[in-house]
Design a protein around this nucleic acid. Structure first.
Lengths: 238, 238
DNA sequence: ACCTGAACACCGTTCAAGT
DNA sequence: ACCTGAACACCGTTCAAGT
């Protein structure tokens, strides 16, 4: 990238909702949630702040649209996966990696459960659970468990990104948290203290996947519920 | 002027960090996150806005302190539970119910992982997993999965509370979301659409617990990993 | 030490006025 | 129709000044 490539203020294209959302994503990615102000967005698009409101209702809708956009992109990219179990893992990892690049998404995912971002995630996970042969009665709870787990990790990663400086890498951050855990009172927090070393050395992404596998294993223990069915008959192949 | 001899009368309701945090919790509970402004808090305490800053660094610390307070209260209340599995369920339900009463906590839980609120949750869950006999190597991933699942549900419940009017009850809210799901394109969202009816009729709290049980079941499938151990030997009693 | 409240530097959003 | 940017009603935070 040329060193003197300063953004040209002159606008060639007309404003549009898509251009506004794209600019918002750029600002969010480079500066975090705090950097997205209507004024900053207007300046980035070389227009007045009022112009934004011609295309977008308010800042909330803008954040939601940006989230839908990012999630839709992830979902179309991880489409593959021949086996349902691998597909679920691929979707989960795709989301994990997307939130790594766009940490603000982890916060915005907690929105109205009828927004495209959430629907795509539920559909993608739930559809594979059906393909996996999870009994109908267990599908709703199973999908809910997986999706809420993914949301929890996403939200925590977003929070972590908010806490540490943008240039700090993950391992440096983990080391500092591990140090905090290690300094705790062993009488009050024996378990947390024991985990400090593992926290420092662990792989976030691998642990996330381990959680997915744990939940899938739990789902695998669910039988169709008929009392007439032997407990070890027709195990669900995961 | 013998000011020094004059006994300084301290207001019985003198400001203190505890009183400020308590007032903040009141405002958050009754008006939601948006209602907590420094001005509103100062008015509620019949003082100036600057007085708050003598006791608390900034609004973030105030929110964190309020969260720690609520979580500490929950944790001390659900202390009981003789069996580890029941104790984990009790802790999880205690958190669920607390977030039902204080929805803003669900958002604030995503904070620095060395804050008391998060530490208490991890310690409480992790300690019971040890008592449950989960192999040491699996404890970190298992606790992480449970805690992140709890966080995900908490965050989603907080978001739901933000969306619907404070007087709307849960079932009315679920009915409206179910209607949105039902109106979706069956070609694009077949799974979500199928779940609409179950969403309308389901019990949020029971489903939350079902998720906990699912993860515990998954954890129960983990063995100590030693190849010398028969797969069906010494199953973890859950 | 503790508290007051005006002042400051922001923010999201609106709207008369322009093209 | 689309865009402009000043204006409005807020915010969190600071700080000289008071007790």
């Amino acid at each position: 990238m040329a060193k003197k490539t300063h953004r040209i203020e002159r606008r060639t294209d007309a404003l549009s909702r898509e251009r506004i959302v794209a600019a918002a994503i750029e600002i969010l990615d480079s500066g975090g949630e705090g950097a997205l102000t209507v004024r900053a967005l207007a300046a980035h698009l070389a227009t007045g702040s009022g112009a934004i409101y011609w295309h977008v209702a308010d800042k909330g809708e803008l954040l939601a649209a940006a989230t839908d956009e990012v999630i839709a992109r992830v979902m179309s990219e991880v489409a593959g996966g021949t086996k349902p179990r691998e597909a679920i893992r691929a979707v989960a990892l795709g989301l994990f990696d997307a939130i790594d690049v766009h940490p603000w998404v982890g916060t915005q995912l907690f929105r109205e459960p009828w927004r495209p971002a959430m629907l795509e995630i539920i559909e993608s996970v739930g559809g594979r659970l059906q393909a996996l042969g999870v009994p109908h009665a267990a599908q709703f709870d199973s999908a809910s468990a997986l999706v809420h787990y993914i949301l929890g990790v996403a939200g925590q990663n977003a929070a972590n990104a908010r806490v540490h400086a943008p240039d700090t890498d993950r391992s440096a951050f983990l080391t500092s948290v591990a140090a905090q855990w290690d300094a705790l009172d062993p009488a009050k927090y024996p378990f947390v203290r024991q985990m400090a070393t593992q926290l420092r050395d662990h792989d976030d992404r691998a642990q996330f996947l381990a959680g997915i596998d744990l939940i899938l294993a739990g789902i695998g223990t669910v039988r169709s519920g008929g009392a007439d069915e032997p407990p070890d008959a027709a195990p669900i192949s995961i």
